[in-house]
């Protein structure tokens, strides 16, 4: 089962930040593949969602980039900035907290139904 794009959109920044925190530097395709493998194909990040998010993280100063030339093409690696490392912790704990709340909220609802 694939999760809906709405769910992924809201958590994509956190996913990318956490991956970068664990892997030092990554490029776009690598990020999509790692997520796919780790979630057993449950979360598939689309290119249309990933690159806008990466550009936005870069503009916010949360990630830095470095370029590697592979023949005629350029590969852009993304790496967390010091500011990004702090933000990752915040984001991950916020999402964990949110998941707990949701669990609690939805459990209550299931009980009342």
């Amino acid at each position: 089962m694939n999760y809906s794009s709405e769910l992924i959109k809201g958590t994509l920044k956190t996913i990318v930040l956490k991956l970068l925190a664990d892997n030092k530097k990554m490029y776009g395709y690598e990020i999509t593949q790692t997520v796919k493998e780790q979630t057993l194909d449950k979360i598939l990040i689309t290119e249309g969602a990933l690159y806008p998010t990466l550009h936005s993280l870069e503009a916010d100063g949360l990630v830095t980039t470095e370029i590697e030339f592979i023949g005629k093409r350029v590969r852009k690696y993304y790496r967390l900035s010091p500011q990004g490392k702090i933000k990752t912790k915040e984001k991950v704990s916020e999402l964990a907290d949110f998941m707990n709340t949701m669990k609690f909220l939805l459990n209550i609802k299931t009980k009342t139904v």
Partner: peptide, 14 residues
């Protein structure tokens, strides 16, 4: 240009 390069590398990888 930055996005073009991103997409190019991505497609090439695939």
């Amino acid at each position: 240009e930055a996005l073009q390069q991103n997409l190019l590398d991505h497609i090439c990888c695939i």
